[in-house]
Structures are given as structure tokens and as C-alpha cells.
Lab assay of single mutants.
Amino acid sequence: MGTYKLILNGKTLKGETTTEAVDAATAEKVFKQYANDNGVDGEWTYDDATKTFTVTE
């Protein structure tokens, strides 16, 4: 398990959240659902060194 971070750079929603997941693929699924639930759809990037996903609208 590891802690993964999501940085939201949406047009109307900005912020950060974290999740505990077994791997990056699992964290990505959780974060994409979170972003979708909050109406954020954009370009995704992932930094393996910091376990950080970023979505920018």
C-alpha cells in the first residue's frame, strides 16, 4: 500500500486529495472517478517519484 496524491486544476474546482492504494493503476481509477464525480475532465499526468497525479482542464 502507498499514499497517492491528486492535484485538481479544474476550471471551477481546484484542490488536492489523497488515497491509499496498492498501486498507481488502482489509485488512478479512484482519482478518475473522483474527478468525474466533481465534473473535472482534462489532461492527466503522473509523477512516479512523488506518486502524484495531476489533472488540468
Rank of each mutant, 00 (worst) to 15 (best):
residue 1 M to I: 12
residue 1 M to V: 11
residue 2 G to R: 14
residue 2 G to K: 14
residue 2 G to D: 15
residue 3 T to R: 09
residue 4 Y to E: 01
residue 4 Y to L: 01
residue 4 Y to D: 01
residue 4 Y to T: 01
residue 4 Y to P: 01
residue 4 Y to M: 01
residue 5 K to Y: 15
residue 5 K to F: 14
residue 5 K to C: 06
residue 5 K to P: 01
residue 5 K to Q: 05
residue 5 K to N: 06
residue 6 L to Y: 02
residue 6 L to I: 04
residue 7 I to T: 04
residue 7 I to L: 08
residue 7 I to N: 04
residue 7 I to W: 04
residue 8 L to I: 15
residue 8 L to S: 03
residue 8 L to D: 01
residue 8 L to F: 11
residue 8 L to E: 02
residue 8 L to G: 02
residue 8 L to T: 05
residue 9 N to V: 14
residue 9 N to M: 11
residue 9 N to G: 04
residue 9 N to F: 12
residue 9 N to T: 08
residue 10 G to A: 10
residue 10 G to V: 10
residue 10 G to I: 08
residue 10 G to P: 03
residue 11 K to R: 13
residue 11 K to D: 07
residue 11 K to C: 12
residue 11 K to I: 14
residue 12 T to L: 13
residue 12 T to C: 13
residue 12 T to Y: 14
residue 13 L to T: 14
residue 13 L to K: 14
residue 13 L to A: 08
residue 13 L to W: 14
residue 13 L to G: 09
residue 14 K to M: 10
residue 14 K to R: 12
residue 14 K to T: 11
residue 14 K to W: 10
residue 14 K to L: 07
residue 14 K to N: 09
residue 15 G to Y: 13
residue 15 G to F: 13
residue 15 G to C: 12
residue 15 G to H: 11
residue 15 G to L: 15
residue 15 G to D: 09
residue 16 E to I: 14
residue 16 E to L: 13
residue 17 T to E: 06
residue 17 T to G: 04
residue 17 T to A: 12
residue 17 T to Q: 09
residue 17 T to R: 11
residue 18 T to W: 15
residue 18 T to V: 10
residue 19 T to D: 03
residue 19 T to V: 15
residue 19 T to S: 05
residue 20 E to H: 11
residue 20 E to Y: 13
residue 20 E to N: 11
residue 20 E to A: 09
residue 21 A to P: 01
residue 21 A to G: 04
residue 21 A to C: 07
residue 21 A to Y: 03
residue 21 A to R: 03
residue 21 A to D: 03
residue 22 V to Y: 14
residue 22 V to N: 11
residue 22 V to E: 13
residue 22 V to G: 12
residue 23 D to V: 02
residue 23 D to I: 03
residue 23 D to Q: 03
residue 23 D to H: 04
residue 23 D to F: 03
residue 24 A to C: 09
residue 25 A to D: 09
residue 25 A to E: 11
residue 26 T to H: 14
residue 26 T to F: 07
residue 26 T to G: 10
residue 26 T to D: 10
residue 27 A to P: 00
residue 27 A to N: 00
residue 27 A to K: 00
residue 27 A to E: 00
residue 28 E to Y: 15
residue 28 E to P: 00
residue 28 E to A: 12
residue 28 E to H: 12
residue 29 K to N: 07
residue 29 K to P: 03
residue 29 K to I: 11
residue 29 K to S: 10
residue 29 K to V: 11
residue 29 K to T: 09
residue 30 V to L: 13
residue 31 F to W: 02
residue 31 F to G: 00
residue 31 F to H: 01
residue 32 K to E: 04
residue 32 K to F: 06
residue 32 K to A: 05
residue 33 Q to N: 08
residue 33 Q to T: 08
residue 33 Q to F: 05
residue 34 Y to A: 03
residue 34 Y to S: 02
residue 34 Y to V: 05
residue 34 Y to P: 00
residue 35 A to V: 09
residue 35 A to D: 00
residue 35 A to R: 01
residue 36 N to V: 13
residue 36 N to M: 15
residue 37 D to N: 09
residue 37 D to L: 11
residue 38 N to T: 08
residue 38 N to Y: 14
residue 38 N to H: 15
residue 38 N to G: 04
residue 38 N to R: 15
residue 38 N to L: 15
residue 39 G to E: 06
residue 39 G to Q: 08
residue 40 V to L: 12
residue 40 V to C: 05
residue 41 D to R: 15
residue 41 D to C: 11
residue 41 D to H: 15
residue 41 D to M: 11
residue 42 G to A: 02
residue 42 G to V: 02
residue 42 G to I: 02
residue 42 G to K: 01
residue 43 E to P: 04
residue 43 E to N: 11
residue 43 E to Q: 13
residue 43 E to M: 13
residue 43 E to I: 14
residue 44 W to R: 00
residue 44 W to Y: 02
residue 45 T to W: 09
residue 45 T to P: 00
residue 45 T to G: 06
residue 45 T to L: 09
residue 45 T to M: 11
residue 46 Y to T: 01
residue 46 Y to R: 02
residue 46 Y to C: 01
residue 46 Y to E: 00
residue 47 D to H: 06
residue 47 D to P: 00
residue 47 D to R: 03
residue 47 D to M: 04
residue 47 D to W: 04
residue 48 D to I: 10
residue 48 D to K: 09
residue 48 D to C: 07
residue 49 A to L: 13
residue 49 A to M: 13
residue 49 A to R: 10
residue 49 A to C: 07
residue 50 T to C: 05
residue 50 T to I: 06
residue 50 T to R: 06
residue 50 T to H: 05
residue 50 T to G: 04
residue 50 T to L: 08
residue 51 K to Q: 11
residue 51 K to V: 03
residue 51 K to R: 13
residue 51 K to T: 04
residue 52 T to P: 00
residue 52 T to W: 02
residue 52 T to E: 04
residue 52 T to K: 03
residue 52 T to H: 02
residue 53 F to H: 02
residue 53 F to V: 01
residue 54 T to H: 06
residue 55 V to P: 00
residue 55 V to S: 02
residue 55 V to G: 01
residue 56 T to Q: 07
residue 56 T to Y: 08
residue 56 T to A: 06
residue 56 T to C: 06
residue 56 T to S: 09
residue 57 E to R: 04
residue 57 E to C: 06
residue 57 E to N: 05
residue 57 E to F: 08
residue 57 E to S: 08
residue 57 E to A: 07
